[in-house]
């Protein structure tokens, strides 16, 4: 397979957009506008990122990497924050968490000589870690809010029995963390069997040997697993206390579900 896809070939991708478009029209789903808009937007975004990356890869590493990582973490923070609507300081807490996780993971990669400090290695790998951490934080926030809402009676019972907020929230913290981690454990179990992970597929298409591609995939999969776990634990432990006031009473906040 050629790693090159010509622009003419790309044009034929329209066919892949026409399928859902036709279905939407035929079954009157009212999604046509959304399908066209998201396809165009996605294409433009990807090309823009392609050109930006080409530019960044040419810059010295100490400029290009911090610049792109800052953009990634900022965008990811604003995105994950939506799931924590109504919770105070959530943007700052997510932002700091993503920085700490990214810097730690990157530090380990460099320390153990898994990748080199060059934009073309650090940026795509970090993007995967930041993106997955962002999703994990968003899911944990969403779950935390719904758990607090559903378990108000139990929490009131625990507080009335003399529990401090941390003790009262124990069940909710466990359930939130479980819900955030279980999908990742399952994903790791079936890795390579159900579908070849994206990064590995990309490397193989690019001409790298499958064994080498697997090594990279292992680095990224385990790094993601670890950062997703850390993200969920971090955001849960940082945010549960905002559901209480300093008099150990439940705040009755109105959260968007």
């Amino acid at each position: 397979m050629s790693p090159e896809i010509s622009n003419q070939s790309l044009l034929f991708l329209v066919v892949f957009v026409l399928v859902p478009l036709t279905l939407s029209y035929y079954y009157q789903l009212g999604l046509s506008k959304g399908i066209i808009w998201s396809s165009i937007r996605g294409t433009i975004q990807l090309f823009a990122i392609g050109y930006l990356l080409t530019y960044l890869f040419d810059l010295p590493a100490y400029i290009g990497i911090p610049f792109m990582l800052t953009i990634m973490i900022t965008v990811a923070s604003f995105h994950a924050r939506k799931k924590g609507e109504g919770l105070p300081s959530v943007l700052g807490i997510i932002f700091i968490g993503l920085i700490v996780i990214e810097v730690s993971v990157l530090g380990l990669w460099l320390l153990f000589d898994m990748i080199e400090f060059t934009p073309n290695e650090v940026i795509p790998m970090s993007g995967m870690v930041i993106g997955n951490s962002m999703i994990a934080m968003g899911l944990a926030l969403e779950r935390l809010k719904s758990e607090f809402k559903e378990n108000e009676g139990r929490l009131t019972a625990a507080l009335s029995l003399g529990a401090e907020p941390k003790q009262a929230s124990q069940i909710i913290i466990q359930r939130t963390l479980g819900a955030s981690l279980i999908p990742n454990v399952d994903k790791l179990k079936t890795i390579g069997l159900v579908q070849l992970p994206g990064m590995m597929t990309g490397l193989i298409l690019g001409g790298v040997s499958p064994i080498m591609a697997i090594k990279y995939q292992l680095v990224i999969s385990l790094s993601i697993f670890s950062s997703v776990s850390l993200s969920a634990i971090y955001i849960t432990l940082m945010m549960y206390k905002y559901f209480y006031n300093n008099r150990m009473q439940l705040k009755h906040m109105e959260f968007d579900q």
Partner: peptide, 20 residues
Amino acid sequence: SITELRKQVGLVMQAPNLFP
């Protein structure tokens, strides 16, 4: 102390709200 007070003045709610 709020935790001590809550132990001395116990509450039973309308729903049992038992812990798993």
